Computed example of a mutant assay.
Amino acid sequence: MGIGGEAQPDRARLLNVSDDVAAWVGEALGVHPDDPAPFVRALTHSSHAVGQAGGSYERLEFLGDRVLGLVMAEWLWEAFPDEPEGQLSRRFNALVTGAVCAEVARGIGATAYVRLGKQARDDGAQHGDNLLGDVMEALLGALYRTAGLEAARAAVRRLWADRIHADDSAPQHPKSALQEWAAANRRGVPAYSIVDRSGPGHAPRFTIRAAVGTDEVTAEGTSKQEAETAAARALLDILREQPATRRKRRR
């Protein structure tokens, strides 16, 4: 009785989780899964997966990253038929970043369904770009496995629709833009260095310094890449606001 009595609530709780996730997936991704287990896994962080059946989202994230890449490349190729490869690559790189995937995940309400260990949740890992970006890719991997490429394509095109045409010109990554500005103004190559790394392994915070000559700025992010991008963007804004006479004296 004791064993059966303890197992029953666990089984019921798992069924409730699956039902909730299935309903949410139907609304968020446009497909109501017959088997919600892959989507539950896509929402499960390794801190929760220890000792649990099904494992974490990591393998589905690996797959979903490739699915997103293929669908996005195909979409850009169709949407911008006159653009050369370089401009298409700029658009692609701007649309598949972890930060953008995290924004999409927040937009569909994934934060409420992420499954974390207690410490990770207490640390706020469910709100970080790193985790939410991974979850979004894992969800696309689960969608591809359960419903096929067409369903994944439809979901990406719907969820990224406001972003693909957000800028008439191909966006340029802030680090590339900073490097081009520095070269055009004879200021040397931008340098990046880690000032600080804090937080637990599942929710790190990086502080990065970006410098061009004597001008520098620091910025934070949940990954080294995110912090470098933020620092490059902030420094570029500062440099562009400098009076032209000051830039000339530096040459």
Results as ranks from 00 to 15, higher is better:
residue 145 R to P: 00
residue 145 R to W: 01
residue 146 T to D: 12
residue 148 G to V: 04
residue 149 L to D: 08
residue 151 A to T: 01
residue 152 A to R: 05
residue 153 R to H: 05
residue 155 A to G: 09
residue 155 A to P: 11
residue 156 V to K: 11
residue 156 V to G: 12
residue 158 R to P: 13
residue 160 W to N: 09
residue 160 W to D: 08
residue 160 W to Q: 10
residue 161 A to T: 10
residue 162 D to C: 03
residue 162 D to S: 15
residue 163 R to S: 08
residue 163 R to Y: 06
residue 164 I to E: 10
residue 164 I to Q: 10
residue 167 D to N: 12
residue 167 D to F: 05
residue 168 D to M: 07
residue 168 D to K: 08
residue 170 A to H: 05
residue 171 P to G: 08
residue 172 Q to L: 14
residue 172 Q to K: 11
residue 172 Q to A: 13
residue 173 H to N: 15
residue 173 H to Y: 06
residue 174 P to S: 05
residue 174 P to V: 04
residue 174 P to A: 06
residue 175 K to Y: 05
residue 176 S to M: 10
residue 178 L to C: 12
residue 180 E to T: 13
residue 180 E to Y: 03
residue 181 W to I: 05
residue 181 W to D: 07
residue 181 W to H: 09
residue 182 A to M: 06
residue 182 A to G: 11
residue 182 A to W: 03
residue 182 A to E: 06
residue 183 A to Y: 06
residue 184 A to K: 15
residue 184 A to V: 09
residue 184 A to F: 03
residue 185 N to W: 06
residue 186 R to A: 14
residue 189 V to E: 14
residue 189 V to K: 11
residue 191 A to Q: 15
residue 191 A to D: 09
residue 192 Y to I: 00
residue 193 S to P: 06
residue 194 I to T: 15
residue 195 V to F: 02
residue 196 D to Y: 01
residue 196 D to I: 01
residue 196 D to C: 06
residue 197 R to Y: 01
residue 197 R to L: 12
residue 198 S to V: 00
residue 198 S to Q: 13
residue 199 G to Y: 02
residue 200 P to R: 04
residue 201 G to S: 12
residue 201 G to C: 04
residue 204 P to F: 00
residue 205 R to A: 07
residue 206 F to W: 15
residue 206 F to Q: 10
residue 207 T to N: 04
residue 207 T to H: 02
residue 208 I to R: 05
residue 208 I to C: 07
residue 209 R to D: 02
residue 209 R to Q: 14
residue 210 A to I: 05
residue 210 A to Q: 03
residue 211 A to F: 01
residue 211 A to W: 02
residue 213 G to Y: 00
residue 214 T to W: 04
residue 215 D to M: 01
residue 216 E to I: 00
residue 217 V to P: 08
residue 218 T to M: 10
residue 218 T to V: 13
residue 219 A to G: 05
residue 220 E to P: 03
residue 221 G to R: 04
